[in-house]
């Protein structure tokens, strides 16, 4: 499998604080890698090194087989970036923003309307971005990231703080691009999003990657599948957790059922957040 992004022992410090500590990973062609970590874990610094805004102080990065230190312009011509900050030109309209960025890629004729339609902004194409909601701006940022038909997409917290409709629209665009064969690097601290979108996830904390694997593997290997039962006991509601791997589980269910009145019972899988906490001792959000 072609390694579209390859990071080898990359590191970056701000003054004396090591933000990214010699991490290595790769992303295969057409794959989505979810980069999970709490705020300040090193996600944005990593993405900045991958897209060329920061030069790694140690290690090496190659994107599409080219070294970022040597062929950055060629790489940047083939990537799309969606930033966490809504860095659009607010005094310009949606269509003006897209046309301006297309011109920077040397694209003279661009079907901006089709891109805006993709992110449900066609009606607002001539409105100034300043009048857009946060969700509309984020959708326009996604459209901007696609302006040069990129082979690789870097998405930094693309659904952070969005309403469910806008978040869904952004997720649909991500999956559509994956279908077309794009390779996607996605940073997020939303474990649900990472679970839904990513082929593999990497946990980053304090500048180091703790683990990289598929969400299924992680849940299977490190998670605990349980059955939760709630029943009434002397007028009180009691709750009990039973492991699905426990051979005596059905015996215990029968026992509860014979003695008490069962209110409800359901299975629960370990979440990525549970596994993240297990690895890092920290919660994902905040």
């Amino acid at each position: 499998m072609e390694k579209v992004i390859l990071a080898e022992k990359i590191a970056y410090s701000y003054n004396k604080t090591l933000a990214v500590d010699h991490i290595s990973f790769h992303i295969d062609k057409g794959e989505i890698l979810g980069f999970l970590g709490p705020n300040g874990a090193g996600k944005t610094t990593t993405i900045k090194m991958l897209i060329g805004l920061l030069a790694p102080q140690d290690g090496k990065i190659s994107v599409l087989g080219m070294d970022t230190a040597k062929e950055l312009n060629k790489i940047q011509a083939q990537i799309g970036v969606c930033f966490e900050e809504k860095n659009l030109y607010e005094e310009m309209s949606a269509i003006e923003n897209l046309k301006f960025f297309a011109s920077l890629f040397g694209i003279k004729k661009i079907d901006a309307a089709a891109l805006l339609k993709k992110v449900n902004l066609l009606v607002e194409k001539r409105q100034k971005v300043a009048s857009f909601s946060k969700g509309m701006k984020q959708r326009l940022m996604m459209a901007r990231a696609l302006i040069n038909y990129p082979k690789v997409l870097f998405l930094d917290e693309p659904t952070d703080g969005l309403d469910p409709v806008s978040a869904r629209a952004v997720r649909d665009v991500i999956l559509e691009e994956k279908e077309k064969g794009a390779t996607i690097f996605l940073t997020t601290h939303d474990m649900m999003e990472a679970d839904k979108l990513s082929d593999r996830v990497a946990f980053i904390n304090e500048g180091k990657i703790s683990v990289i694997d598929t969400p299924e593997n992680l849940k299977h290997e490190y998670g605990k599948r349980i059955l939760k039962i709630r029943y009434r006991l002397d007028g009180r509601v009691e709750e009990e957790e039973l492991s699905l791997e426990d051979k005596d589980m059905s015996k215990r269910i029968d026992e509860i059922n014979s003695k008490h009145s069962i209110l409800d019972m359901h299975t629960e899988e370990a979440t990525l957040e549970d596994i993240f906490i297990k690895f890092t001792g920290r919660k994902l959000e905040g």
Binding site: I51, L53, Q76, A77, I79, V81, E85, L88, Y89, L104
Partner: peptide, 11 residues
């Protein structure tokens, strides 16, 4: 507003 960043990730 970090619009410079958006320009500098293009060619």
């Amino acid at each position: 507003k970090k619009t410079a960043d958006a320009i500098l990730v293009t060619p």
